[in-house]
Structures are given as C-alpha cells and as structure tokens.
C-alpha cells in the first residue's frame, strides 16, 4: 500500500463530496424557490442522481479494483441490469426496514421511498460499483477482517457512517422544537447525507493514520 493510493482515494472522495455540494447548488440556478427543506424531494432526486453519476464515473475511469477482465458486451449488459435490479431491491428493502421502524405505512410513501433511494445511493451504489453484484463479496467486506484493499476499507467506513447518520437522524423527531427539518424523513435524510460526507472525509484520514497497522491479504 502506497501513499499514492491513499491520495487517489482522497481525490475520489473529494469528488463525491463535491457532487453532494453540487446537488445543493446547481438546481437553485435554474429553479425558482429551490431549497433543501421546502423542496426536499426534488433535492433528494438531484442528490441521488449526482452521487450515482459520480460513482459511475469513478468506476469507469481509474478502475481501482483492476479485476475487470475483458468480457463480452452481453456480459456487461447483464451485469449492468443485475446492478439495477440489486439497486431497486435494496431500495425496497430499506423501505421495508423504515416501515418496520415505525414509518407510516400508507401516508408519505413517496417520502419514505425517496429516503430509501438516497440511502441506497450512499450505500448500495458504491458497493455495486466497487464489488459488482456479488453478495458473497459484500458479506466478506462487511465482516471482521474481510477487507482486502483500502478501497474496500473506505467503502466499509462510508457505508457504516451513512447508516449511523440515518439512524442518529431519527433522534430529533420526537423533540417538540417544531422545526421544519424535524418532519419525517428530512432529519433522517440529512443525517444520512452528513454521515456519508463524514465517512468520505474520515476514511482516507483513518487509513492514512493506520497505514502501518493495515495489512491486506492481497497486498
């Protein structure tokens, strides 16, 4: 593991953070009265779109995993379709979990689903880009001592921090402050976003500080 790897990781993460910031800035240029709180759903769509596209670009360009062998077009197409299916399944799965956590079943379905989409964007999409539609690999990455590269390590950190952010975001909902961001699911989506960004910032730093101790099986 070299410092250049960590540097690449850092730049990639900066791009991701940049995409989140862009999703706040760009729509306000061509949309009247755009704000995160008032037109929350629009922002969610934009944010999801931007983060997904940046992840795709990152996946297509530097190929950090270097494991993609030459393969036929049909293989690529099925792989892509499989990724799409996985993404929707994960959205649905998150939606179910939110309902189990007490989100209303019938009202606010769109809000809940978009929250599921944004959380999938922060967690499933990077996994799909890095690991592909391979459940075994996912489970390996998310278990103890299962990571094999700094990319996987950072993936682990950002995913977990997104989840924790969304989880913590539910805490202000019962408080009686009557703020606009306490409405379901705004605090949770904001929490997930902050968690994701925090994970993006923390993971290169953490890897840099622990670079002596980190030894990967494949390196």
């Amino acid at each position: 593991m070299k410092d250049t790897d960590i540097k690449t990781l850092l730049y990639a993460h900066f791009l991701c953070i940049f995409s989140v910031i862009l999703s706040v800035l760009i729509p306000s240029f061509f949309m009247e009265d755009f704000s995160i709180l008032d037109t929350h759903l629009t922002w969610l769509c934009f944010c999801s779109l931007f983060v997904t596209s940046i992840n795709l670009v990152l996946y297509l360009v530097p190929k950090p995993n270097a494991s993609s062998k030459r393969s036929s077009l049909s293989h690529k197409v099925t792989r892509f379709l499989k990724c799409c299916v996985y993404f929707f399944v994960s959205c649905f799965f998150f939606h179910v979990i939110f309902v189990l956590y007490g989100a209303p079943l019938i009202e606010l379905v769109l809000e809940t689903f978009l929250f599921a989409v944004i959380l999938s964007t922060f967690t499933t999409v990077p996994c799909l880009c890095l690991l592909g539609p391979n459940l075994k690999a996912w489970l390996r990455v998310f278990s103890k001592n299962g990571v094999t590269s700094i990319w996987e390590n950072s993936l682990q950190i950002t995913t977990i921090s997104s989840f924790v952010g969304a989880w913590l975001g539910a805490f202000p909902i019962p408080l009686d402050w009557e703020r606009p961001w306490q409405v379901w699911p705004i605090s949770c989506t904001l929490g997930a976003t902050f968690g994701y960004v925090a994970g993006l910032v923390i993971s290169p730093l953490w890897i840099y500080w622990n670079r002596k101790q980190l030894t990967y099986k494949n390196n």
Binding site: L100, Y101, G102, W167, A170, I173, P174
Partner: peptide, 9 residues
C-alpha cells in the same frame, strides 16, 4: 419511541 427504536435496532 426510544424503546421501539432500540428494540428494532
């Protein structure tokens, strides 16, 4: 809410 949340988690 706290308890439901904790039990779910």
């Amino acid at each position: 809410q706290t308890w439901y949340f904790l039990v779910n988690t």
